[in-house]
Design a binder for these strands. Sequence first.
RNA 1: GGAAGUUUAGCUCAGCCGGGAGAGCACCUGCCUUACAAGCAGGGGGUCAUAGGUUCGAUCCCUAUAACUUCCACCA
Length: 882
Amino acid sequence: MKEMRTTYDPREFEDKVYAGWMESGAFSAKIDPDKVPFTVMMPPPNVTGQLHIGHAMDETMQDIVVRFKRMQGYSVLWQPGVDHASLATEHKIVEKLREEGTTKEELGREEFLKRAWAWKEQYGGRIVGQLKKLGSSCDWSRLAFTMDEKCSRAVREAFFRLYEAGLIYRGSRIINWCPDCKTALSDEEVSWSEDAGHFWYFNYPVEGSEEVITIATTRPETMLGDTAVAVNPKDKRYAALVGKTLILPLVGRRIPVVADDYVDPAFGTGAVKITPAHDPNDFEVGLRHKLPMIRILNDDGTVNKEGGEYEGLDRYEARKRIVEDMDALGLLVKVEDHTHNVGHCHRCNATLEPLVSKQWFVSMQTLAKPAIDAVVKNKTKFTPDRFAKIYYNWLENIRDWCISRQLWWGHRIPVWYCEKCGAEIVTPKDDPTVCPHCGCTHLSRDEDCLDTWFSSALWPFSTLGWPEETPEFKYFYPTDVLVTGYDIIPFWVMRMMVSGLRYTKKVPFRDVLIHGLVRDEKGRKMSKSLGNGIDPLEVIEQYGADSLRLALISGVAPGNDTRMSAAKFEAARNFLNKIWNASRFVLMNVKEEEVPADLSAIKLQPSDRWIISRLMTTVREVTLALQKYDLGIAADKVMSFAWDDFCDWYIELSKPALYGTDGERKRQTLGVLLFVLKNTLKLLHPFAPFITEEIWGYLPGAEGMIITAEFPRYNSRLAYREEAKAFEGVIELIKAVRAIKVATACPPAKKVHVYLVAEPAQLVSAKRLVGVNKQSILRLAGASEIEFAESGAAAGDKAVSQVSTIAHIFVPLGELVNLEEERARLQKELERAEGEIARAGGKLANQNFVTKAPKKLVDDERAKLEKFLDMKKKLEAQIASL
RNA sequence: GGAAGUUUAGCUCAGCCGGGAGAGCACCUGCCUUACAAGCAGGGGGUCAUAGGUUCGAUCCCUAUAACUUCCACCA
């Protein structure tokens, strides 16, 4: 047998262990009619992205669930994949081109796409390697890409179906435009921030009079596109002006004064300039009053030919010039500081321009209804369920989804236009060559791409081959659980639900497990600009992947944000070191011994039954917690069992047997140690897969790999309830003696003689329990001898005592005892007992409690009262004897 | 303006069905006890944000208040 290294060093084996899993085929999903499928779709990270701590948490949670289910015997498919991330990726490539001194327009579409694919090839594998470092047990042979053939086919089909149903339309709307990325963005892609700006007050002269109307604006340059000024119909100040015509300064355009409820008379001057082409509200006003829409900006944010003399200026330059010019004309009334919410591009952070533009939209309202119903009817459940409310909130207030992007990297919109008759042609599969309306062969394809999320929305079934009814689709769909952060609900969860129900008539997943954000130790979001990001790969390098995983889930409640710091990684690493050494200890003692293979061949001692009982309780708790996706609680239960019960108690208790002369007893104890260790490792495996697999390889009689071993099952025959409870008395006894020694400043190395005085009724069982465990008790309590006596007098005058469940403990400490301190200590004990008596007595004196509370509780209180009354009596006697 | 969340030990956070408040870290006291000092043993520390209510009984349920966080809306 190989020897384990003396220290836990994850770098030593993690890569090797992962390679072993890959080789074994343990990750590969199989269609097995005899098994129940369990499917998880990995949220596809950006293909050229890098693993960050948020991914690490998301992946860890999925891997825990997947490994648990795999060990439970399900036929597991964890489908991995990567996303083309249209805007993010294109943005990076454009950046690179800029560094090279060129642009995508100069390159042209074809050449640009070549560069993009090359970029994807260069960085596409990076994230996959990083996921492997983390231990992700997904089926890599099925690695999907949102732009691969399968997914593209699904995108095409989905678009076709929606188009045919009239749910995709093309129209002019105000959209969020990023002048840097030169594309439209969906509402969800806008990030808002409070920016310091100004409020400029301008006078617009009334035609044919000396009168003026004062408006206020935060974006003076948009006045170039003004086609009206609006006031509230109830506003008496302006009533006379409604219907009059204004002369738009600098431009000279004649524009009307209109009355519209949209205007708040109390805000600003109560008169609003209306720029229908550059503001969503103004757009609505424009529609209501049939105002012209004049777009004044080019795609790059410069003023277009509508701007007259301002043409070609950047929007901010134009703003400056216009304010100066208005001032020169005496039409600038005043300037105020003003902070307001401004939309920014979530990719490049440029200030967005709302502008009117022709885009493709999906009408969401009819699609949203089934998605709401499915959650109402519990076909899909959110964990924690409060996120269902967030989900409803979104879907109930949904607006149409702008799906076209002025990008090249992505799924090109599958719409062709006939150059002759102008017909729109959409086909489900093959590209059209002839116009079905006029027979013309001059067709041109729409230049734009689809929003990345359009393909992501199909992920749960496009990866399984939909629209084909593949065996995979039939077996693995619908999927079981989707794990993602709450920030992705509107982008992704919602849209998958909508598309899943629309195309497959089924919910795409039965459970949605939502987690929070990983923050830094001060609770701040991690960001590049703050430089407070934690690189998961560095953590893996320093502490190992298992430590990272444990740190990410322990002590975290579902859906809550969590703070990460080196302290947490260290704590996790320390725990794993404990496991490593405990295993090493067991193995060191096994050596050449013939250890019984299973429990039935072992004559179990009280301590054996106690640890097995604790193991069973833990198995039940962990299984339950995992089924409820309470991963933090599950990890906590395994860890405290492993450390507190197994390491600190059972291993210590077992030492006398291991170091003793009774070979049979030694082998039997080793049998129990191995049994408990194996089960502990299995319980721990979903959380810390590497170390458990590595140790598994050293264990005698451990067959195969732990990754495919069966997850421990609760066995009621091994629960040993009564015996375990009785054994707790031994633990209490040991603790009591230890406490006495510390409290009396007895040197740890000095062994004490312990006398026990038991109640006659308990004497026999107490003697048996103490007798069987005598050597362990002596060792753990630091005692030289332990014996039963008639009374405390046996311990002599200067004895210290403690009341415990099994017996009243007396320890003679001779000259070491400081009588004053001992009296104070006992007095404190007495006060505690009296407090308990008062509490229990008070409760029992309450007639309402006695009659209305459950009988068991009342009985328990009575028992407690008696116990403490007895304790009080003994303590008083002890104090009196000092 | 709408919605959700949080408030528990010095810090970070757990706490399932209402029935004596928990962990890790930090702190204090001892220990290099032949698996582990990344460790062992013992210990101190909490009006469970505030005020009401329901209940025999509330950290937990209800109402209100306060503080903080996040998402949505986006008055030019």
